[in-house]
């Protein structure tokens, strides 16, 4: 599959958003291209989730222009947008005991007319995404009975059932352990590589971001501070400026990815004491 590297998805032109007189995002100029895996980083309250909500039409920019594929986002019908962009939330809560299969089937909603039922192809697609995310064996279980990791897999499966071009991950794996986190992100990464899926992921873990993404966007207090490839912007001075921590970045021999570690004065002291204790003990 030939990938058009230069195709622009979102174009943000001086975009701002706020609640009342409290501004959340300010003067954002940004361009997101097809086929990349973007990481949106920044401290709590920097506007990561708001940015994703703007991308999928849940919020409307207060100022500036936001275009998707050259067309103003306000010109997109909700269902049309849902066929292009899917969101995986941080906590996927399902009430009333719907089964895994029923929830994944909901992903087909934007493709169906009001009176339509699922076709043979819809069922095949649902089966294949459940298999891809490894939840096919749980198909008839209520989602309420699943573990956190399984639930997030179902959320991703449902988003993939939308057959979207773009997947937005809103800290989709933040509550999961590293094994489940990596396995979900790995499966998504494969889609990016094999099918040209575009991903925009709000993340907290810088190492995970360096590992998973190829482009990073750093936000602080609603402003865009840095955007670039992982190698360009995942730097010690950037991290110190954005998060206000003393960080060091070096290339990890094992993974080949940039590795971030931190120095915290208090912790250092206790380590020294620990080693002294070991020597004397």
């Amino acid at each position: 599959m030939a990938r058009q590297d230069s195709e622009i998805l979102w174009q943000l032109d001086q975009v701002g958003f706020g609640y009342g007189d409290q501004s959340v995002l300010r003067d954002l100029d940004l361009q997101l291209e097809k086929g990349h895996c973007y990481g949106v980083l920044g401290p709590n309250g920097s506007g990561k989730t708001t940015l994703l909500d703007l991308f999928c039409g849940l919020l409307v920019p207060g100022t500036g222009k936001l275009k998707l594929c050259g067309r103003s986002l306000s010109g997109w019908q909700p269902r049309q947008l849902a066929r292009k962009v899917a969101l995986v939330p941080q906590d996927f809560v399902v009430r009333f005991g719907f089964s895994v299969r029923e929830v994944v089937e909901m992903g087909r909603h934007p493709h169906l007319g009001r009176f339509a039922t699922l076709t043979e192809q819809d069922h095949e697609l649902v089966d294949s995404v459940m298999q891809e995310m490894g939840v096919d064996t749980l198909a008839d279980r209520p989602v309420t009975r699943l573990s956190g990791g399984e639930k997030q897999r179902v959320a991703v499966a449902r988003a993939l059932a939308q057959d979207p071009e773009v997947l937005l991950l809103d800290e989709a794996t933040s509550n999961l352990d590293i094994y489940h986190s990596l396995s979900i992100l790995g499966l998504i990464r494969r889609r990016v590589r094999e099918q040209g899926l575009t991903v925009v992921a709000a993340l907290h873990d810088l190492n995970l971001a360096g590992f998973f993404c190829d482009q990073l966007i750093f936000l602080k207090k609603g402003r865009l501070l840095y955007q670039g490839t992982v190698d360009e912007v995942l730097q010690a001075d950037v991290i110190s400026q954005v998060y206000g921590v003393d960080a060091r970045v070096r290339k990890d021999v094992f993974s080949g990815c940039p590795q971030v570690s931190y120095r915290v004065p208090g912790l250092e002291v206790s380590r020294t004491r620990l080693s002294e204790f070991r020597v004397s003990g």
């Binding site: 849940l58 909700p78 909901m106 909603h109 959320a155």
Partner: peptide, 23 residues
């Protein structure tokens, strides 16, 4: 009955429902 499928989707939360094109 016409809104049955949309009501199902509501069970996954307002935000998730909205991203599936449900107003």
């Amino acid at each position: 009955m016409l809104f049955g499928r949309e009501l199902n989707i509501m069970a996954t939360g307002e935000r998730a429902a909205a991203t599936l094109g449900v107003n």
